[in-house]
Amino acid sequence: MNKGAKKTLIRLVVAVPLMFAFGFALVPLYDVFCEVTGINGKVFQSEHSEDLMSDDGRSIALQFISTNNENMPWTFKPSEQVMKIETGKYHSATFYVKNTTNKRMVAQAVPSVAPSNAAAHLKKLECFCFEQQELMPGEEALLPVKLLVSNELPSNIKNIILSYTIFDITDYDDEALAHHEMDME
């Protein structure tokens, strides 16, 4: 094989693992892209910020939706279906859960925001979706979420829907999950 061919060959052989790695790099890139653009309705935890707070906010409706994934037997519902809130102020809400089974279970709630361009303006100080919920048989709890909608919310949005789907993750490897959570935060 001549020199030129060897060079071409080496380049191509290097390209293959690089593209393989690129396939995996798409996973974090996808998250970063969604975080930057605020699409996909994902909301990440944010710090308490005085800058976001103001008194000249407007009034919007915040609607809560709860969904049980597949065979998740828990009772899971928002304490209030709709809240009137002011932009630029922190508000708290709660979700009621009850483990209706007779065994210990662990759950994870996954949030989503609609319309998706509101997600970037929704700042969550505290959310039960940032951690797992472990409930003993018959145990019930009120899960808190504390959030602020910034004043920069596009003026055509008058109604934000915050939905949570609750998943049964009792059988998952807790350790692997803990790692993943850290990555998410």
Binding site: N69, Q108, V110, F167, I169, Y172, L177, H180, M184
Partner: peptide, 8 residues
């Protein structure tokens, strides 16, 4: 959990 919503 690359594609599993429960695991993020």
């Amino acid at each position: 959990s690359f594609f599993n919503a429960a695991g993020g």
